[in-house]
Design a protein around this nucleic acid. Structure first.
Length: 218
DNA sequence: AACAGCGTCAACCGCCCGCAT
DNA sequence: CATGCGGGCGGTTGACGCTGT
C-alpha cells in the first residue's frame, strides 16, 4: 500500500488555525504563480504546512471569488433540492452555488438544513429520489463545473450510495420527487455537448478560472 | 461571575481516482 | 499490469463563541 499523500504532515511544524502571515504568504504566492502543484507549494511559498492544508485553506477561505456570509434562503432551497438529487456530493452542489465551497455547504447542511428538514418532518437522509442506478450524467444546470467527475465518467458507478437522477434516455422526469414535487432544476442528463460545455465554461470562468486542473479535456 | 451545554465552522483525516512511469 | 504520486472529496473532529442556568 502506498503511503498517504500527506504523510509529511507529521514533519510539519504548523497545524491548526492559520495565522494572518501564513494567509498572506499563500495569497501572495498564488497571485504570483497561480494554483497548481500543491505538494511543492508550501516550500516554494515558505509555509510550514502540507500541500493539502494549503489547498484547503485557499479553496475554502482565501479564494477571492468566495461570497462568505450567510447563506440565503434561495441558496438553502437550492441546496436542499440539489441534495435531493445528488446526495452528499458536496462539491457538486457547491459547484452550482457560485461563491460557495463544498465545506461551507456541507457545514450548513449538517448544522442548519438537516435539523430544518427533520423539523419539517422530512427525513434529511432519505428525502432524495428512490434508489436508482447511478448514471453517467452531465448536470447542465445554471452552472457547468468542468471539474464535475459525474460529467466526466461513470467511474464512481460502483459506489454503494444512490444517485437520485434518472438517465434522460429513460424519459423519466427528474423534476419529480416524493418530497419536492416542485423541483425543477433544469438538469439535463446525457453526454455534454462540447460547444455548450465551452460556453458554460466561459460563463463560469470568472469564478472557476483559478482552477487549472479544471480542464474539460480531461 | 462561573459553569455547562450547545451550535458553528475551520481544519484535519483517510480514502479514492486519474495519471505517469 | 503494478506502483507511486498528486489532487480532490466526504466524513469527522475540536476549538471557540454564544446562551442559558
Amino acid at each position: 500500500m502506498r503511503k498517504p499523500s500527506c504523510d509529511q504532515k507529521k514533519d510539519m511544524k504548523n497545524r491548526g488555525a492559520w495565522s494572518k502571515q501564513e494567509d498572506q504568504k499563500l495569497i501572495d504566492y498564488i497571485q504570483k504563480h497561480g494554483e497548481g502543484c500543491w505538494s511543492s507549494l508550501p516550500e516554494a511559498a515558505g509555509l510550514l504546512r502540507c500541500g493539502k492544508s494549503c489547498r484547503l485553506r485557499w479553496v475554502n477561505y482565501l479564494r477571492p471569488d468566495l461570497k462568505r456570509g450567510n447563506i440565503g434562503e434561495d441558496e438553502e432551497e437550492l441546496i436542499i433540492k440539489l441534495h435531493a438529487l445528488l446526495g452528499n456530493r458536496w462539491s457538486l452542489i457547491a459547484g452550482r452555488l457560485p461563491g460557495r465551497t463544498d465545506n461551507e455547504v456541507k457545514n450548513h447542511w449538517n448544522t442548519h438544513l438537516k435539523r430544518k428538514l427533520d423539523q419539517m418532518g422530512i427525513a434529511s437522509n432519505n428525502h432524495r429520489l428512490g434508489v436508482l442506478p447511478r448514471p453517467s450524467i452531465s448536470l447542465v444546470s445554471n452552472y457547468y463545473n468542468p471539474t464535475d467527475k459525474v460529467a466526466e465518467s461513470s467511474s464512481q458507478a460502483n459506489d454503494d450510495d444512490d444517485y437520485g437522477v434518472m438517465n434522460s434516455a429513460s424519459g423519466t422526469d427528474i423534476s419529480h420527487t416524493n418530497s419536492l414535487p416542485e423541483l425543477n432544476l433544469d438538469l439535463t442528463i446525457g453526454l455534454p455537448d462540447h460547444d455548450l460545455m465551452e460556453s458554460n465554461y466561459e460563463q463560469v470562468a470568472g469564478t472557476r478560472a483559478m482552477h487549472p486542473s479544471s480542464s474539460i479535456e480531461k
